[in-house]
Design a protein around this nucleic acid. Structure first.
Ligand SMILES: Nc1ncnc2c1ncn2[C@@H]1O[C@H](COP(=O)(O)OP(=O)(O)OP(=O)(O)O)[C@@H](O)[C@H]1O
Length: 721
DNA sequence: TAGCCGTATTTTTTT
DNA sequence: AATACGGCTA
């Protein structure tokens, strides 16, 4: 059965059928870019007989990559039978780089079992370095310096070349720039010594590898004959360079994106990549898609009205034949708590009155901290919800600590992990001892782990603890290495029992009990740790052996891949039991950034105030308001049927009430598209009929509440992650 | 060294 | 309001 392209419009079909050579699909929100890319991949495999292993699909989040892959598999299975998609590579840029570096990194002197540092690992590491090299971490903000280092890396500047860049960037004063430059030098040599890479290094080093080693470059050029990139407007210079290197032999590169949805310039993404694609890749074909299949005309017009205020954009003429639908609602509340209450009650009311599933609702906010109030109010009404991103499972202390132990087992050079757990549970190794060890390691330029045998300077208790700790790690490492390289399944279950056993040896329970005298809290923490072991068992064999370039599955390799995955997919939900996941009916709470690429029938865009949107820091730092406007555009265009924008007149911040004003972007939406409802205590001009309607509504909500309360009893609801 | 207590600080988005 | 950090004492 051939792959049916019936569901595509002529332009989309053209993009799917277009032959070899560079191809750009530049189109607005909801025009079917991702769908088109999915079909194009399926078409390559099913109709043009391109082997799946020759295709590389790239996107920016693991969630997006997984979804893309699933959709391709579904399409191809219908047309060409199951199995035709075996060995297809659809991943994120970062995961691809990990694979390349694991397989060939030795050529640049990297070990296979390098540790990947996430943001908080970076912070820990840099904080330590700043102490070592006596940079005042009060005078110089850690995160600003990390940010600058990241900027330098995404521009491909090595530590010794970066000082000029820091000085010229204009973001920092000269003394700051010099502090950043010297931090970068030490940070980088520290990472090297620790056999560790941060997210930017993954890209940086993969690019360096492909640039310096022709045979590696050639290898991947031959393997990936078709490359497709989603959300291309979010590529940074390193990613662009990687694509260049992968397309030297042929330019079968299809990129898809929307310059109006460029919301990651703050971390180095450069939308000129998409705007100048035709100059970068000679002979590129450009296809635009104009029909939006997602939103009503009202929502689309509101979005267009806002985004039109940006200069320097590729003009588009998006339209929709979905009719005008409901007007956009703007609801004004007195305080943040009431905003939460309103959103929860409104979701509840709509769900009941119109029989809408919970999963059809989303609450979108600018920053993660805003989620809390909505969690509380939804929980109050027993509305099931899930939070995407924000404080995650992996941010929990007990989880981090166990992961630190495991990381140390795989890579004893990981100083940040060592510092984290050397005294957890308490082993009598305090600040002074750790400082001794740290200083000695710093002067000798070796990882702290190598200094552990030298206990002469330490107090007796600390010396004993140090010895015990070192032996514990070595013992765990040895038993992990003893796991035979048999079939992947057998090896994985062996690693799971190893992990369980490691908890005993670490005395994790003891550590938890020490920390709190609340047994319930300790139990919860213990359950989180067990969840971690469970997750290790969920790892699929092909994730370790899937790439033929990888060696056999030994215990170390399995744990190493699990740890890498945990770091790279930190924000993704645990896909526990896949089926259950699909069926789960819950309201989604997420940031505007997190919502990119997604769609919901009913969207609540909350906190539409100056200070959130645009964010206060953007205003203060006089940085790019255009990006904040694009963020607003992304938010609006997530809605299919109904968009409800809320804001509070006052917000409680650090115990003080702060007055808030309407988002300046709201002023850009034409009045005729909006219905404003002022539900604050001193409404400016609310007709009394509205008040009556409100009272009636309140009564209705009460009634519903009574109704479910009686039905529910103790039924489960609330968050899970 | 460990634990308690008081003070200062928090204000973005994420791979 | 909540928390992280540093200093002080046992
Ligand atoms: N030809 C079509 N006919 C009907 N529906 C379509 C068509 N093309 C796409 N759609 C639907 O339109 C919606 C948006 O598609 P998709 O997510 O691919 O758009 P997008 O351009 O990637 O959006 P965004 O830029 O916002 O991420 C989806 O629900 C998709 O199923």
């Amino acid at each position: 059965m051939p792959l049916s392209l019936n569901r595509l419009n002529p332009n989309q079909r053209e993009a799917v059928l277009y032959g070899n050579g560079p191809l750009l699909v530049l189109a607005g929100a909801g025009s079917g870019k991702t769908s088109t890319m999915t079909y194009r991949i399926a078409h390559l495999i099913a109709e043009r007989n391109v082997p799946a292993s020759a295709i590389l699909g790239l996107s920016f989040t693991n969630k997006a990559a997984t979804e893309l892959k699933e959709r391709v598999i579904r399409l191809v299975s219908e047309a060409a039978g199951f199995g035709a998609t075996r060995n297809i590579m659809i991943s994120t840029f970062h995961s691809l780089c990990v694979r390349i570096l694991r397989a060939h990194g030795a050529k640049l002197g990297f070990q296979r079992d390098f540790t990947i540092l996430d943001q908080s690992d970076q912070q820990d590491t840099l904080k330590q370095i700043m102490r070592n090299i006596k940079i005042d971490d009060r005078k110089f903000d850690l995160n600003s310096i990390l940010f600058e280092i990241g900027q330098a890396k995404s521009r491909f500047l090595s530590p010794d070349a970066a000082q000029g860049f820091f000085l010229d960037s204009g973001r920092l004063g000269p003394d700051y720039a010099i502090a950043a430059a010297s931090s970068y030098i030490h940070y980088q040599s520290q990472l090297k010594a620790q056999n560790a890479m941060d997210f930017d290094d993954l890209l940086f080093n993969a690019v360096a590898l492909l640039e310096k080693h022709e045979e590696v470059r050639e290898h991947y050029n031959q393997r990936f004959r078709y490359i497709l990139v989603d959300e291309y407007q979010d590529t940074n210079p390193a990613q662009f360079r990687l694509l260049r290197l992968l397309t030297q032999r042929q330019q079968n590169l299809c990129v898809v994106g929307d310059d109006d949805q460029s919301i990651y310039a703050w971390r180095g993404a450069d939308p000129t990549h998409i705007l100048e694609f035709a100059q970068h890749f000679r002979g590129a074909k450009t296809i635009t898609l104009d029909q939006n299949y997602r939103s009503t005309m009202t929502i689309l017009e509101a979005a267009n009205a806002v985004i039109q205020n940006n200069r320097k954009r590729h003009p588009k003429s998006l339209w929709s034949d979905r009719g005008s639908g409901e007007p956009v609602s703007e609801v004004i509340l007195e305080e943040d708590r009431e905003e939460g209450k309103f959103v929860a009650e409104e979701i509840f009311r709509l769900a009941k009155e119109k029989n809408i599933r919970w999963a059809d609702f989303a609450v979108l906010y600018r920053s993660n901290a805003q989620s809390r109030i909505f969690e509380e109010s939804l929980r109050m009404l027993r509305v099931p919800y899930k939070i995407v991103g924000g404080f995650s499972f992996l941010d929990r202390k007990e989880v981090k600590n166990i992961l630190a132990y495991w990381r140390l087992v795989v890579n004893p050079g990981d100083d940040a992990s060592l510092r984290r757990v050397i005294n957890w549970p308490a082993r009598g190794i305090g600040r002074t001892s750790l400082e001794h060890l740290g200083n000695a390691a710093f002067t000798k330029e070796v990882p702290i782990f190598e200094m552990l045998p030298e206990t002469a300077q330490l107090a007796p208790r600390a010396a004993a603890g140090t010895k015990a700790f070192r032996e514990l790690i070595l013992d765990l490492r040895e038993s992990l290495q003893k796991i035979p390289c048999s079939s992947a399944e057998v090896a994985i279950s062996a690693v799971v029992s190893w992990a369980r056993n490691s908890l005993e040896k670490i005395q994790a329970r003891k550590a938890l009990d020490e920390e709190t005298d609340d047994p319930a809290a300790a139990l919860r923490q213990w359950e989180n740790i067990e969840e971690l072991v469970h997750g290790l068992g969920q790892i699929r064999p092909e994730e370790i052996t899937g790439d033929s370039e990888e060696g056999p599955a030994d215990g170390l390799a399995i744990l190493r891949e699990y740890l890498a995955r945990m770091t790279l997919e930190a924000q993704d939900e645990e896909e526990d039991d896949s089926k259950e996941n699909e069926l789960r009916d819950e309201v989604t709470l997420l940031t505007l950034h997190g919502a990119k690429g997604l769609e919901y029938p009913i969207v609540f865009m909350v906190g539409a105030e100056d200070g959130f949107l645009p964010h206060r820091r953007t205003i203060e730092e006089a940085s790019d308001l255009g990006e904040e406007r694009r963020l607003c555009y992304v938010g609006i265009t997530r809605a299919k049927n109904h968009l409800i924008i809320t804001r509070a007149k006052n917000r409680i911040r650090y115990g003080k009430t702060v007055p808030r004003t309407r988002s300046r972007f709201m002023d850009e939406i034409p009045q005729k598209l909006l219905v404003v409802r002022d539900e604050s205590r001193a409404p400016s001009a609310v007709p009394s009929t509205d008040k009556a309607a409100l009272a009636a509504h309140e009564v209705r909500v009460r009634n519903y509440l009574e109704e479910i309360k009686s039905k529910l009893g103790a039924a489960s609801s609330g968050p899970k992650r």
